[in-house]
Simulated assay, not measured.
Amino acid sequence: MGLITPGLGLIFWSALGFLIVLFLLSKYAWKPILSALDEREKSIEEALKSAEIARNEMSNLKAENEKIIHEAKIERDEMLLKASETAKNMIEEAKSTASLEGKKMIENAKVAIETEKLAALEEVKVQVGILSLAIAEKLLKRNFSEDTAQQALVEELVNDLKLN
């Protein structure tokens, strides 16, 4: 049974060696390893906090962007509505101006036509007067001593008037 159970000296020296290694590791290796682990843990915690802060900022920025986009759409719609109303007003104003101008032109044309009509009537009156004077002149030049000559002259003038 000696092979299965170790001797007391072997246990002593193994325990002494383990304690020396444990002392050396705790003195020189565990402090740097633990401090490195602590630093790593702190950096991971800081990274998680930074990620959470960034996530919050991103959600805030997204919400703000959506709000800005919504406001821009509302403003765009208002501007389009104002532009549409302005265009309608300009069209109505142009129509009314054109209508007024058209009425003025028609009125001016009527006045011009009336003026031309009156001038033409005056011209006709002048021509009638000239013709009447010419007829009177012809009548006076002829000799009215004979009744047959007077009768022939009257018939000739009546025939001339019917032809014209």
Rank of each mutant, 00 (worst) to 15 (best):
E101N: 08
S132H: 06
P6K: 11
E107L: 08
A98F: 01
L139S: 07
I130N: 02
E46I: 10
I113W: 09
K141P: 00
A54R: 10
K42E: 10
N164D: 11
A47W: 00
K110N: 05
L34G: 06
A29T: 13
H70T: 12
K162C: 03
S43A: 10
N89K: 13
P32W: 01
W30C: 07
L24W: 14
E75Q: 14
V111M: 00
R55D: 06
K82A: 14
S99W: 10
K73E: 15
A152L: 14
E57V: 03
L118D: 12
S26A: 11
D77E: 14
A51N: 01
R142F: 06
E45A: 09
S35K: 05
A109G: 04
N108D: 11
K110F: 04
E146F: 05
L157Y: 15
K31F: 05
K49N: 06
M105H: 01
R142M: 13
S26C: 00
L25I: 12
N65L: 09
K88F: 02
S59K: 07
A63N: 06
A72N: 09
E64F: 01
L22N: 04
E85P: 01
T5Y: 05
N143Y: 04
E93P: 02
H70S: 15
I11L: 05
E78N: 14
L61N: 03
D38N: 11
N56L: 11
N89T: 06
